[in-house]
Design a protein around this nucleic acid. Structure first.
Lengths: 226, 226
DNA sequence: CGCGAAATTGAATAAATTCAAAGCAGGTGG
DNA sequence: CCACCTGCTTTGAATTTATTCAATTTCGCG
């Protein structure tokens, strides 16, 4: 599924800050289960696998020495995480909401020289990842706090929401701090934007982790021009 | 050459927002020359080539409908630009300072199925690009205006500067607007940071496009904690 | 019910932007 | 050769935006 991140913008859609679900490998799956808060790998670990998310949500993050943290991406079902830099991972990867992943050994991928199909799929996944990171850059640098939060809700809604006739609802498995660190904002600012959207009747929160999109059009508008 | 983007941070260095010079292809080069302001491709164009920068400077940018522009990266010698998303480029690519590039046909790369070495190098380049984009995300979201500008100067100095005994000087081929759009700042803010660094004696500007780093240590400090 | 963690709200502050104006350099034509 | 124009850069003052600090509320859970 493709989502127009800034809908009015281009004659063609492009992937937003989440990657496009697609399988990269067809061979024997090595499915692993991780509970909430589990760690898949840390920055600096030797990269052994790339992971394909089947269910649940992962969080890719990096921490600077001064304590500031940046959430690079959330890994939703269909996403591939764990692209190495050289031989090492360059982010931490933790479980936000208990997840099933398929672990693909990098050594196998590298040695699968006869398997052009696999090579090609992995390359396509890497290219999507580049695109996804560029979209994230666009958002961080070009959007206001409200636009960031609205964009975030838009994408989550489209990727994980269950649409009903008049509304779409979905859960926010990550805490406000994770959202803030993903969007380059503070917790308080994220909260304020949620509150504004609620007051405008664009969304409702059943619990702090359960969003109901009451007016998708308004949400899309808010994601583009405040 | 590896550069520690936030030097104190990790037990290992990682690539900053510029990619690491390395050759991806050994076969027959198709060298092209482009003058300043020339356009290599635009967002939405069908992707035909990836380009390896041999000399000069390229600018990768994307424009939102509201006119806001984001410079995604500068392509310096050694960098590879033009990674497609699907069949299309997802940024504009223009020449900042007249450049020589090697154009590699994507179709050749894809069909070069026997050439594992080439496949592998292209994948490594894509992985470095992912890493580079993540570094850019870190900078945009976690750094202050001064830290951004100082980081930018640090990297340019290390990648393109000519070191003397007491100082390093280098040229800034891109205009202030390009720097501002790269760092997610305004032109005025970039100028002010330059002025501050000058007043502190950290740098000097012979012309607005010629930087002399007088105190590299101070510049590194400024890139990390203001 | 009550505790601790997370989320929300409010007021003061800090940071960067916006708007406005002035300086500077390169190029053109008188 | 100089004056002038244009585009880029720099500086200043006012404004806006998001942050920080502080207090309060709500939620999840035993």
């Amino acid at each position: 599924m493709y989502v127009t991140f800034s809908m009015e913008q281009q004659p063609f859609s492009y992937t937003p800050f989440f990657k496009v679900p697609r399988k990269i490998l067809t061979n024997a799956p090595n499915i692993r289960r991780f509970p909430s808060s589990a760690n898949l790998f840390r920055e600096g670990d030797k990269a052994e696998h790339v992971y394909e998310v089947k269910s649940g949500v992962l969080r890719l993050a990096r921490v600077l020495a001064n304590g500031r943290r940046q959430v690079i991406a959330f890994g939703l079902p269909g996403d591939i995480v764990g692209f190495p830099n050289g031989d090492f991972y360059h982010t931490d990867c933790d479980v936000v909401s208990s997840a099933e992943v398929i672990a693909h050994r990098l050594s196998e991928l590298e040695s699968a020289k006869g398997d052009f199909e696999t090579q090609h799929r992995l390359m396509q996944a890497a290219l999507r990842e580049i695109s996804s990171m560029q979209d994230h850059v666009m958002m961080l640098a070009c959007k206001s706090a409200m636009e960031k939060v609205a964009s975030f809700l838009c994408v989550l809604s489209l990727r994980t929401g269950t649409p009903s006739s008049n509304y779409t609802d979905f859960s926010l498995p990550m805490c406000r701090a994770d959202i803030a660190d993903f969007l380059g904002l503070t917790i308080e600012t994220v909260c304020r934007m949620f509150s504004l959207l609620r007051k405008e009747g664009t969304i409702a929160l059943n619990t702090p982790q359960t969003v109901v999109v009451l007016d998708m059009e308004a949400l899309i508008d808010a994601s583009q021009s405040d």
